[in-house]
Computed example of a mutant assay.
Amino acid sequence: MKAETVSLNPTGLNFGRRAAELRERMDEPDCDLATLHRTYAQFAVVNTLVSGWRQVYMRHLRPQLTRLHKASTQPASLLDIGSGGGDVPRRLAYWAARDGFQLQITAIDADARAVAYASSLPPQPGLSFRQAFSGDLVQEGQQFDFITSNHLLHHLTAPELAALLDDSQRLCRGTVIHSDLERSALAYAAFGVGIGPWFRGSFIREDGMLSIRRSFTAPELANIAPQGWRVQRQWPYRTLLTFQADHG
């Protein structure tokens, strides 16, 4: 008896290429503001479920924070790029403070709506929000011990991605970590069935599925990343694009 073949891509969509032409609803300048705010609020839950930042903090950030804490009495500094509703930098600030580290976090976003929302929440010591591009901070001559981003890379065009990575190298004297989704049919199906339907009244499900289709695979990132950058896979269906500055 011939075994039945089960399709790993029941959607029929082509996941062999980035659907970079798609545009997420929350990126539209005229999208409904109340729905956008609910989306920002729900990101805190979604990112807890899928973004893996606790693992990133424990493996990549805390060891470096320990080293900096022992070497200097000055606070360490972190730049979060494309901070959206601000839940990831808030979580990083909380973990660092709980571990006894001094960490000053600057969270930037190009979208004034995101900055206004994040700034409207209760203030958190050591965390500030600002509307800016990474290039603005390069022009100001700023530098940070850490640079992070979450779900930013898939929003960018090829020239924008190249500029971000160049800015990251110029701005960072330590560790850069750009975390994003990894495109796959399984990730798309899992999000659509297991996570997306729970978040109503927002753009989470629709934009989340578009985000997966727009995202890079690990081999694609490795192919376009400049020399010195490293691509790692992280469960579930995620990539980390990292850079370590030369301390000499």
Results as ranks from 00 to 15, higher is better:
63 P>T: 02
165 L>I: 13
137 L>N: 09
243 F>I: 00
151 H>V: 15
4 E>H: 07
92 L>G: 08
73 T>G: 06
126 G>C: 01
43 F>H: 15
184 S>N: 04
141 G>Q: 13
196 G>I: 10
194 G>T: 09
33 L>W: 13
194 G>Q: 13
226 P>H: 02
191 F>V: 11
118 A>K: 03
26 M>H: 14
159 P>Q: 03
89 P>K: 06
7 S>N: 02
90 R>D: 06
146 F>H: 09
215 S>H: 13
153 L>M: 12
111 D>W: 06
112 A>D: 14
169 Q>K: 13
17 R>T: 09
81 I>D: 06
161 L>P: 12
198 W>G: 07
83 S>H: 07
170 R>N: 08
57 Y>F: 04
81 I>R: 03
151 H>C: 15
89 P>Q: 12
134 S>C: 03
192 G>F: 02
108 I>L: 05
49 L>F: 04
139 Q>K: 07
125 P>K: 11
196 G>R: 12
2 K>S: 11
214 R>M: 09
75 P>R: 09
87 D>K: 06
60 H>C: 06
61 L>T: 01
196 G>E: 11
179 S>Q: 08
64 Q>T: 01
195 I>C: 12
115 V>C: 15
69 H>V: 01
50 V>H: 10
241 L>S: 07
145 D>P: 10
203 F>P: 15
86 G>W: 13
31 C>V: 01
109 D>A: 07
82 G>Y: 11
90 R>G: 01
149 S>E: 00
159 P>V: 03
114 A>D: 04
77 S>I: 00
150 N>K: 03
27 D>R: 05
201 G>K: 03
226 P>R: 01
153 L>W: 08
7 S>L: 10
183 R>S: 07
43 F>A: 10
109 D>G: 10
230 R>K: 15
171 L>R: 12
60 H>I: 01
72 S>V: 00
189 A>T: 11
10 P>D: 09
32 D>P: 05
86 G>M: 11
124 Q>H: 04
80 D>A: 06
205 R>I: 01
163 A>E: 14
198 W>L: 15
130 R>N: 02
16 G>M: 04
15 F>P: 05
49 L>K: 14
70 K>M: 02
197 P>K: 03
50 V>K: 11
236 P>F: 03
71 A>G: 09
161 L>K: 15
149 S>D: 06
232 Q>L: 13
26 M>G: 12
221 L>R: 07
40 Y>C: 09
148 T>K: 04
59 R>Q: 12
194 G>F: 00
160 E>P: 08
140 E>T: 01
80 D>L: 05
127 L>T: 01
